[in-house]
């Protein structure tokens, strides 16, 4: 019946349009992108200063500190994922858009990862040097961070969607997300530690990859449902 009318653009154009708009917004307000990155860099550089320059100690805590800092900086940036859209009413417009909501939510999450997760992965080698991380371990760390931040952005989008209507929902968001984010942190930090100790680490990488794929396939639907609930 409705086939007579022009077809709605495919889901990839919806995904791309949302991601593009958010990237454009991030480009116009670079502060929002740089804040979490700055936080990540700051935490990572302050630890060696506070703990002291003992190489063994730094080598030992390095993976853990980098990973905790990455997790916290992602949590910090998640709060704003839907907040701007909620405040100016564009979230309502997304809810009545002819495009499927999970796709639009995924587009927003993709933009979030590109502006928060990916920069973090890219600067991590510089920070790893502070912890005397061997050059052979750095690619492993980057790979785990890459897969881990994808999971964190996706899982975090569920929490961000649930808390978008609440004022000052940051603490609640962190509480909601932490149980889901814990496996990512444990797998990530331990995999890097294993690689640094010349142990077999590939299992951890596969597990992180599996976690990222599971998040990718489930989180957009949960986020869409959460957005509908919190906007009733």
């Amino acid at each position: 019946m409705s086939d007579s009318g022009p077809q709605i653009p495919g889901i990839f154009s919806g995904l791309w349009a949302t991601a593009r708009r958010d990237l454009l917004l991030a480009w116009k307000r670079p502060g929002d992108v740089l804040n979490p990155l700055f936080f990540f860099a700051m935490v990572c550089t302050l630890f060696p200063l506070a703990i002291g320059p003992s190489p063994e100690q730094l080598e030992f805590i390095g993976p853990g500190v980098l990973w905790v800092a990455a997790l916290l900086s992602t949590l910090l940036s998640l709060n704003s994922l839907f907040l701007g859209d909620f405040e100016d009413g564009s979230l309502d417009q997304l809810l009545v858009s002819p495009q499927p909501l999970p796709v639009l939510a995924l587009g927003k999450t993709l933009a979030h990862w590109l502006t928060s997760g990916l920069p973090l992965v890219l600067v991590s080698p510089i920070l790893a040097v502070t912890y005397r991380m061997p050059a052979s371990v750095v690619p492993v760390m980057m790979l785990t961070l890459l897969l881990g931040t994808i999971s964190l952005s996706l899982l975090g989008s569920i929490g961000a969607a649930l808390t978008v209507g609440l004022h000052r929902g940051t603490a609640l968001l962190s509480l909601l997300i932490l149980p889901l984010a814990m496996p990512v942190l444990l797998l990530g930090a331990n995999t890097v530690s294993l690689a640094a100790g010349n142990d077999i680490y590939t299992t951890g990488v596969w597990a992180l990859g599996a976690y990222a794929i599971a998040s990718l396939s489930l989180a957009p639907y949960a986020t869409a449902a959460a957005l509908r609930i919190s906007n009733e």
Binding site: L25, K28, R29, E87, D88, G89, L91
Partner: peptide, 10 residues
């Protein structure tokens, strides 16, 4: 809607 849903930065 009451809120325009347009982005002020764009």
């Amino acid at each position: 809607a009451h809120r325009t849903g347009l982005k002020g930065d764009l």
